[in-house]
């Protein structure tokens, strides 16, 4: 019976994590999948969300800014707002230029955020990170399975909400402009669309969603540290999107679950195979594995598992039944 409870607890833990990844990948999907914007600093935006929400909600702690002990919801909203603001700054500087520049600038901001997280002890707790990030429901329900299950329900709710919101957005005229820009910038511009404004809007919204995902992470684990937001995280998230199918919101969610499963299983297998003194090397091999998965996916099935739906007006199909 306890085994079953332990298994259920782990399943809830695993799925809650997959759900948190799914939220972030949905944000990335708005960037890359729908607008064609290269964000190589996803981990940075996630980190902003996690730290801002943690600072807003943790109880007071000497020698540390923050400790506002605000409600968790306020922390989440603050997280999304802060990450969106970061997106606004980076986007304003780079979105008029070639896509490579955005990639380089986002890569840079992720490194700077990593440096701040590591060194600004008064703000981020430095290498020791921030502890005692409040876990919603834990006090009333108890740790372990009840908390994991309740948080899983919460995460699923957020995933559904973000998914529904994004689906509405990308199917609206606004979303069609995004895809038009992605496919042919010049054509979209010649139709009078202000490319820069649309790109910036999409970039800010996507960044805010990533920040929300970071906050979800912080309140699930209850502890955040700089090494939670290394470039490897960005890479995992990108692999999730590519595997699931860029440009498809359900694909983004599926990719998060699949890649997280591959990651967890391969990690467990390598830990079991490698001798204790070679664990670091085993972890390195795990990253190589995911790298090969991404490369293979790009070459063999570039559309991903689900792929983007073909966007043809239903009226066009009705008028020309023969195609």
């Amino acid at each position: 019976m306890t085994d079953l409870a332990g298994l259920a607890s782990y399943a809830a833990f695993f799925l809650a994590f997959a759900g948190i990844f799914a939220v972030i990948v949905l944000g990335l999907n708005l960037h890359w999948g729908f607008t064609g914007l290269f964000n190589v600093g996803v981990a940075g935006f996630v980190a902003i969300g996690a730290y801002v929400s943690a600072i807003l909600t943790t109880p007071d702690h000497p020698g540390q800014l923050g400790g506002f002990a605000l409600p968790v919801v306020v922390g989440w909203l603050g997280a999304a707002a802060a990450a969106g603001l970061a997106g606004l700054i980076v986007g304003a500087a780079t979105l008029r230029l070639r896509h490579d520049y955005l990639a380089i600038a986002t890569f840079g901001i992720a490194i700077v955020i990593q440096l701040v997280a590591l060194n600004a002890q008064w703000l981020t707790g430095g290498p020791f990170g921030l502890h005692f990030v409040p876990k919603p429901f834990e006090a009333s329900l108890g740790a372990g399975l009840p908390f994991n299950a309740a948080y899983l329900a919460l995460v699923v709710g957020v995933v559904l909400l973000v998914h529904a919101g994004l689906e509405r957005l990308v199917r609206s005229p606004w979303g069609r402009v995004l895809r038009a820009i992605r496919e042919d910038e010049v054509a979209a511009e010649s139709l009078g669309k202000r490319i820069f404004a649309f790109r910036l809007q999409a970039f800010v919204i996507g960044s805010a969603i990533m920040g929300l995902g970071g906050a979800l992470y912080a309140h699930f684990i209850g502890y955040i540290a700089p090494e939670d937001f290394l470039p490897i995280l960005t890479f995992q998230l990108w692999t999730m999107l590519i595997v699931g199918g860029a440009g498809n919101n359900r694909g983004a969610i599926l990719g998060a679950v699949v890649v997280w499963a591959v990651w967890a299983i391969s990690g467990g297998a390598l830990r079991a195979i490698m001798p204790p003194d070679a664990q670091t090397r085993g972890a390195a091999l795990q990253v190589v594995l995911i790298g090969i998965l991404l490369a293979a996916m790009l070459i063999l099935r570039p559309r991903g598992l689900l792929g983007e739906e073909t966007a043809i007006s239903r009226h066009a199909a009705a008028r020309e039944p023969e195609g």
Binding site: D100, W238, T239
Partner: peptide
């Protein structure tokens, strides 16, 4: 670009 990002992480960890 993203392929190079992946290749980089794989090579570094190798």
């Amino acid at each position: 670009i993203i392929a190079s990002f992946g290749a980089a992480l794989a090579l570094r960890n190798l």
